[in-house]
Write a protein that binds this DNA or RNA. Structure first.
Lengths: 144, 144
DNA sequence: AAAATTAAGGACATAATAGTCTCTTTTTTA
DNA sequence: TAAAAAAGAGACTATTATGTCCTTAATTTT
């Protein structure tokens, strides 16, 4: 569904957001530990999130990553997905046809469409706040 | 979503089914041409479908592939997906956690679940007949 | 029986994804 | 100002997915 990089990006963003809520920056090392991901690889995807303006990075001692804006409800998961994987999750034909669309549909098109639409809506509707709250309350987890 | 191999497998199965309906076997060459897929690679996935008992292969002149049973409505797309990709499409955690479940959910678990469930239901409900009929009537396409 | 046709199987090749390593840059702290 | 702490960047490696090639086996046709 999502690439590994995207999975790490979402998990990292949730952790960064929870730290930002407490006025703390999250260092790469902390992030990799808390989401149980390979450090160097995670660094790459965080750079992409940073270039996309979703998070802000600060170098030097006590540097690290923080969310780019205070309002976590305005950062949608879709922004992360688009930044890392692009829009292919929503747009790609389920049977791999190049030019599958309403006028030239693959046999599975009409049946698959609702699934894709639902995924798109949920990802666009869900904010970073929605996902951090469960983490903070201890109801959800970022690793294992 | 599905692997390339699985996409080819579903498209191939639809073509094979449409040929079987007319009492014809589909040769690998015909299949690869009609679904616009790499011949040798497609051969591999057809072998898997054959070993899974979804299609039957016959060697020699006028050999080829045909569906294993007459009742196309009893062959579900889920069988093809399971045969090629396994059940990970339905079961894998959207954020990549090993042990994500109701008791130990990732932050996205509850939101993602309906998407996964809908996909599973649709794939389990849709039969090879459902998908061949549109092809035969010229309303849907297997390539480009 | 020989030749032709077709799938099966295994070894190999290529591409995409995932992941690592090392050096550089920026910032803070001593 | 020097050292330490952190991210940035690029080259490199590893793994997996995708795809090809060649030989073999089975079947049919001549």
């Amino acid at each position: 569904m999502f690439s590994k990089a995207c999975e790490y990006a979402i998990r990292a963003a949730i952790f960064i957001a929870s730290e930002s809520e407490n006025g703390r920056r999250a260092s790469l090392k902390d992030i990799a530990r808390e989401i149980d991901s390979p450090e160097a690889f995670t660094a790459k995807t965080l750079q992409k999130l940073s270039r996309s303006g979703i998070i802000i990075s600060t170098k030097g001692a006590h540097g690290g990553f923080q969310v780019a804006r205070e309002e976590l409800e305005n950062i949608k998961i879709s922004q992360i997905v688009i930044a890392i994987d692009g829009d292919k999750v929503y747009t790609r034909c389920s049977l791999g046809l190049q030019a599958c669309n309403e006028d030239h549909p693959c046999p599975f098109h009409s049946r698959f469409k609702p699934v894709r639409t639902e995924l798109k809506e949920i990802v666009e509707k869900t904010s970073l706040r929605d996902l951090t709250s469960g983490l903070v309350s201890g109801d959800t987890f970022l690793k294992i």
